[in-house]
């Protein structure tokens, strides 16, 4: 049914720009999480975070491959990940911000994966059958990420005075970047529709963590438009340097 729809109504297929945007969100967050590899507070959590990073790379690969096929210019997942420059990446700024301490990393990853949770749910019902299949697969792993990370947000937020203070600081820092997730534009006219579901997911966890989001601010991040924070260039240079130094290298 979905396939027929996609064939008969071309507009039902997600645009390359939209696919790249959500793929970039997964890839860049994965890059940040993989920075924890070997540095986790405990071996078990080190593996947990890098497991999540690998799941995110898996999502990005599927989306890049689909985008490349739809674009029809012969670009594969590596071309998108390693051979585009900063302005061509359209991830929301939230995912490129520095890791900070463990609490900040966990909170940022929670806020974004909670967004992914509602995103996959909505895309799972998309008439675009290929994208819906990716969303179905990703929804399962994202549900686990979300519950694992929510557990940490609650433990640290409602933990010691020190951990509560750190999480409060992290939430003050990260929260102003969240409205960008729901800023609609020509590429994603439905973006705002996900906000209430996201808030309904996040609010009880923050409440249980005894954390209060700061008041809404007029600040809007612009990563989705390719205008990134000062941190993005460093992230990309680390992520892309090997592939660019040895083009076409294989394991």
């Amino acid at each position: 049914m979905g396939v027929m729809n996609a064939l008969t109504t071309p507009s039902a297929a997600a645009s390359v720009s939209f696919l790249l945007r959500i793929a970039d969100g997964s890839l860049v967050l994965s890059q940040r999480l993989s920075e924890w590899c070997g540095h986790g507070p405990i071996l078990e959590e080190d593996i947990a975070l890098t497991n999540i990073a690998l799941d995110l790379i898996g999502q990005a690969r599927l989306l890049y491959t689909l985008a490349g096929a739809r674009e029809g210019r012969g670009r594969d997942e590596d071309a998108f990940a390693y051979w585009r420059d900063e302005q061509e990446f359209t991830n929301p700024t939230l995912v490129e911000l520095p890791n900070g301490d463990f609490g900040q990393s966990v909170l940022r990853t929670y806020l974004y994966t909670a967004y992914q949770l509602v995103l996959w749910q909505s895309l799972g019902a998309s008439p675009d059958a290929e994208l819906a299949a990716i969303a179905h697969k990703s929804a399962k792993e994202t549900a686990y990420h979300c519950s694992h990370l929510a557990g940490w947000v609650i433990r640290l937020g409602d933990g010691s005075a020190e951990s509560h203070q750190r999480l409060t600081r992290a939430l003050d820092y990260l929260w102003p970047y969240t409205p960008e997730l729901f800023t609609a534009d020509a590429i994603d006219p439905q973006a705002a529709a996900l906000e209430s579901a996201w808030r309904a997911t996040v609010a009880p966890v923050l409440a249980q963590a005894t954390l209060t989001p700061p008041a809404a601010s007029p600040f809007r991040a612009t990563g989705k438009q390719g205008r990134h924070s000062e941190h993005m260039g460093y992230l990309l240079s680390e992520m892309q340097s090997l592939a660019r130094a040895h083009p076409g290298a294989k394991w």
Binding site: I42, E44, A48, N51
Partner: peptide, 20 residues
């Protein structure tokens, strides 16, 4: 075996470490 502060995290750590 895994180290964890409580049951919930012990199960998650076991899942992450031993069922990859």
């Amino acid at each position: 075996s895994v180290h964890a502060p409580d049951v919930e995290l012990a199960l998650q750590a076991a899942r992450d470490v031993y069922t990859r």
